[in-house]
């Protein structure tokens, strides 16, 4: 006979005398703890992960995952995300198995994702996976008892990037509440901006969407903002004046291949490049984020500015991913 207890019932009974972090610890052990998306996480869960990331930043090298095996299955090429996850696992004492190219696996022989996941589940304690197909991570989490961490599924979700973005914002601003977040560039296809937008929902942000017409924020995300009461402003001008009130300037790359009209690309390609001389009027606390890789959308002269934060942001990815791995394993720093 099984005793089935829901997370909600524990919260209801325990909320008054057990710290929320303890509840997350208890309930995470009880159910499939996969992280496919963090878009619907509440403040408590996000704060739990932020605090854990801060703890790992204080001391990144530990042995708390000794004896554990982390599988990194990259069905699609990745450099930063894979290295960051593998470094996180190694720095916590875990062993890492996996592949970086599906051509060398049975996937190339026609093996289904389900079979690959079930096979790897026999060996690993946690699976970090990236896949070109949208929804692959969610499906993988349904076919195995081993927790899955979504390291990107096509253009759908990339929760570990969102987590490091949130951590970078929290660290530089001291809070996630009431911030002016300016998103610049490719807002149509950029999954990082979509995920960030949704995960900021509980914190009363004001978004400014700065993009060319062809790459403007998709209607479904604007509808999401309206439904959730999130304030946003749309603009096409990207100047010193239009970014003066930003707390966070989130830059993305405008890619040539996204344009159906190449004349339009030629017209706008230089309009969304950030130069150091555009930072004269910006707020002191303003930080520039970018998911990387950068091509030319941030001029090299910006790198020396105290507002530039994109390389530290990438470093924060290590701590955020250490937190995510430990969270799904139910292990405390």
């Amino acid at each position: 006979m099984y005793l089935i207890i829901s997370r909600r019932s524990i919260l209801r009974k325990a909320n008054y005398f057990v710290p929320l972090q303890e509840i997350w610890k208890i309930t995470d052990r009880m159910e499939n703890r996969s992280i496919v998306s963090i878009a619907d996480y509440g403040k408590e869960k996000i704060q739990y992960l932020l605090d854990m990331a801060a703890e790992f930043e204080r001391q990144p090298n530990r042995t708390i995952l000794q004896g554990k095996v982390v599988a990194t299955l990259f069905f699609e090429p990745s450099t930063r995300t894979r290295l960051s996850f593998e470094t996180a696992a190694n720095r916590l004492g875990a062993r890492v198995i996996g592949f970086t190219d599906p051509k060398v696996t049975s996937s190339s022989k026609g093996e289904t994702l389900k079979d690959t996941i079930k096979m790897v589940s026999n060996y690993a304690d946690v699976i970090v996976m990236r896949h070109r197909l949208e929804g692959a991570a969610l499906y993988a989490s349904e076919v195995t008892h081993v927790p899955i961490i979504n390291a990107g599924d096509g253009s759908n979700l990339h929760p570990s990037q969102t987590m490091l973005d949130l951590y970078s914002i929290y660290k530089t601003q001291g809070t996630l509440e009431n911030l002016n977040i300016y998103m610049v560039g490719d807002l149509k296809y950029g999954r990082t901006v979509h995920s960030l937008l949704m995960s900021m929902r509980p914190y009363n942000p004001t978004f400014h969407f700065i993009a060319p017409k062809e790459l403007e924020m998709p209607e479904e995300y604007k509808m999401y903002c309206k439904k959730e009461g999130i304030k946003y402003v749309e603009q096409t001008d990207f100047t010193e004046d239009t970014i003066a009130d930003a707390d966070i300037l989130y830059m993305t790359r405008v890619q040539r291949e996204r344009f159906t009209d190449l004349m339009e690309y030629e017209r706008v390609k230089d309009a969304y490049i950030l130069r150091a001389d555009m930072l004269g009027k910006c707020r002191e606390n303003m930080k520039i984020l970018h998911p990387l890789p950068r091509v030319n959308e941030i001029e090299q002269d910006v790198d020396d500015s105290p507002h530039a934060y994109y390389f530290q942001q990438a470093q924060n990815g290590l701590y955020a991913r250490e937190a995510l791995i430990c969270s799904v394993l139910g292990i405390e720093p």
């Binding site: 197909l133 949208e134 499906y139």
Partner: peptide, 12 residues
Amino acid sequence: ANPVCITNNEPM
């Protein structure tokens, strides 16, 4: 209708 959805590429 999304060709890159996992459901169109796995027997599920």
